[in-house]
């Protein structure tokens, strides 16, 4: 039985209200959804909210899911929307290391954060620096990058999840990676 067929059966069971099937579906996807939410929002409490929103929506609307479409695409789209909604709800979000707020597109904040990263370089582990740098990307670039790395999607799948063209996916990933490189200048040489 291939993955698509087995997933369809699992979803059929969910439609008829089988809670065990729901739990299985949740188990299959929860860690990746949580990881995206955590790295997107920068804090555990928002990440929990996002995961709950995603699966609540998923479970209550599973009847609307059209069996000819691909379940994972639907899940990714719900995840992206929940992340962006959470961002809109919080005018200022608190990043993972309590380093203070970030306003979208605020140039000064961007430069300031680069200085902070360089200063703390010797004290903070590498992955914490990367987490923090990702948290400083604009939400649209950030979500594109997280979706790419945690879900390993093709540009075509990403375009469907993000509701944009493949060209836009490519340009967001280009910008996102370049900005990350700028933020992480201090790490260059350590990450191979």
């Amino acid at each position: 039985m291939n993955e698509m067929a087995s997933e369809r059966l699992l979803i059929e069971a969910c439609r008829s209200g089988d809670r065990e099937a729901f739990r299985r579906l949740y188990e299959l996807h929860k860690d990746r959804v949580y990881s995206i939410a955590l790295h997107f929002s920068g804090n555990e409490s928002s990440a929990r909210d996002i995961v709950q929103q995603v699966f609540l929506k998923l479970f209550t609307r599973i009847g609307e899911f059209r069996s000819e479409s691909i379940f994972s695409t639907w899940l990714h789209r719900i995840t992206v929307n929940a992340c962006l909604d959470e961002h809109r709800k919080q005018r200022r979000f608190i990043s993972i290391d309590d380093q203070g707020g970030e306003e979208e597109g605020d140039e000064n904040q961007f430069i300031e954060s680069r200085v902070t990263i360089e200063t703390d370089y010797s004290m903070i582990e590498r992955s914490a620096l990367v987490r923090r740098a990702v948290g400083r990307l604009k939400p649209k670039l950030r979500i594109a990058i997280l979706l790419k790395y945690f879900e390993d999607l093709s540009y075509r799948e990403m375009a469907e999840a993000l509701g944009c063209s493949e060209g836009t996916v490519a340009s967001r990933l280009n910008r996102g990676h370049r900005e990350l490189a700028g933020l992480l200048e201090a790490l260059r040489g350590d990450i191979k």
């Binding site: 987490r131 996102g176 992480l184």
Partner: peptide
């Protein structure tokens, strides 16, 4: 620049949902 950014992202690890 892009490759460096892309490799840096690999530092992010999957975190188990509580």
């Amino acid at each position: 620049e892009i490759r460096f950014g892309a490799e840096a992202v690999r530092e992010l690890k999957i975190v188990s949902a509580p």
